[in-house]
Simulated scan of single mutants.
Amino acid sequence: MSQQTDILVSGGGVAGLIATAAFASAGFTTICVDPTPPVTSEGAAGADMRSTAFLQPSRIVLERAGLWERLAPFAAPLKVMRIIDAGGAEPVARLSRDFNAGELSDAPFGWNFPNWLLRREMVARLADLPLADFRPGVAVSGLVTRLTGAEVTLSDGSRIHARLVVAADGRDSFVRRAVGIPVRTTRYGQKALAFAVTHPIPHDNVSTEIHRSGGPFTFVPLPDREGVPSSAVVWMERGAEAERLAALPVPEFEAAMTERSTGLLGPLRLATRRALWPMITQIAGRFSAERTALIAEAAHVIPPIGAQGLNMSLADLRCLLDLCEKDPVHLGEPAMLDAYHRRRWPEVKAREIGIDLLNRASMVGAPPLRDLRAGVLGVLYGMAPVRRALMRAGLGMR
């Protein structure tokens, strides 16, 4: 006998947990499953060392999910996005340009949070929602879809009949493969190191991307650690170099990252373990199938440039949630899912192309190409209408 639910969310990462809270807050019975229980403490084994910057439009989704009030006390506002080119003969800043949120509104560009903390607060929110049923340690092991609904088999042997299955189960999505949606993947030969640091010079709520070669070195503000300024770092390099850096003893690694950062915030001290992630771009051929919607990395994966990744995921969720709330009687039916695909796929594809170009530009090693990159940045920044248009586009504002 199958248990009945409106929505089954496959995947309990940050995007899946937000989706579960949002749908349950909107009045839909929602079950969320994930084979790996969430790690909700920074020092625990398997803790996600990355951070997430929620841009302005994503706050609306967090508010609808009842999460913003819980998260706000831990937010590090992002008031300025700074781009530094350090592509000269020595790793020093030769060009610096600031994109200031004050040119658009009184609000910051966004707010940054450690991923482990997001999971902690989201799991706590789900516990308060009577329509949410979170089942960590359980995976989707079978899926059969029909016009009347989806029959889902779980790894614990239980069966669920869902009107809509939301695939938030990552870049290797079981649900996406089960419904036969192909993906196109681009590999860069890059990896990203993710970790947190402390530094003597305050970050002043400025998020900074430093470009030299191999990929950007990015500081994203975090709240102070025991009174000492702190930032999350994503350091992208070609694969072999990233692996070499990840294996360095801490003192040597600290010296290397301080040099790569151009000394912007003073000597850097490693505050957490280092995590290593392969860099790819990936997009699904469709974002929907019978009784199924793909969101987040089940639908698209991009390198972590411009804080686009999870914010694109929340744009997926916002679009799908709007469609579900507008017509709950026809939840998960073909017209609704076709509308979701039509609205999201072209926008995601356009952003994928843009991020791919930016990433390739950040990887260049030849001095003439690095000089060209710096020149283009200077020209674009100098034109105020273009600068503001780039900021609005980065935020996903129309």
Rank of each mutant, 00 (worst) to 15 (best):
V9T: 14
V9D: 15
V9L: 11
G11M: 14
V14H: 05
L17C: 01
T20H: 13
A22L: 10
A24H: 01
I31Q: 11
I31K: 07
C32I: 10
T40H: 01
T40Q: 03
A44F: 06
A47G: 09
Q56K: 12
P57D: 02
S58W: 00
R59C: 07
W68Y: 04
L71P: 00
L71H: 02
P73W: 15
A76K: 14
L78P: 09
R82N: 06
I84R: 02
A86K: 04
A93N: 01
L95R: 01
A101M: 06
L104R: 00
D106W: 09
A107S: 15
A107L: 14
P108Y: 07
N112L: 03
A124E: 08
P130D: 14
A132Y: 07
R135P: 09
A139P: 03
L143H: 04
G149N: 00
S158G: 12
R159Y: 10
R159A: 14
A162R: 07
A167V: 13
G170L: 08
V179N: 08
A192C: 09
A194V: 08
T198H: 14
P202T: 06
H203V: 02
E209C: 11
E209P: 11
G215K: 05
P216A: 06
S230T: 10
A232G: 15
V234H: 06
E237C: 06
R238Y: 09
A240K: 12
E241A: 13
L248K: 11
P251D: 04
M257D: 06
S261N: 04
T262K: 00
G263A: 03
R269G: 12
W277V: 01
M279W: 12
I283W: 05
G285A: 12
F287N: 12
E290K: 10
A293E: 11
I305P: 13
I305K: 06
G309K: 11
N311E: 03
S313Q: 14
D316N: 10
L317C: 03
L320G: 07
G332M: 05
L337C: 02
Y340S: 11
R343Y: 00
W345T: 07
E352C: 13
S362V: 10
R370D: 00
G378T: 05
M383C: 03
V386A: 01
G394K: 04
L395F: 05
R398Y: 14
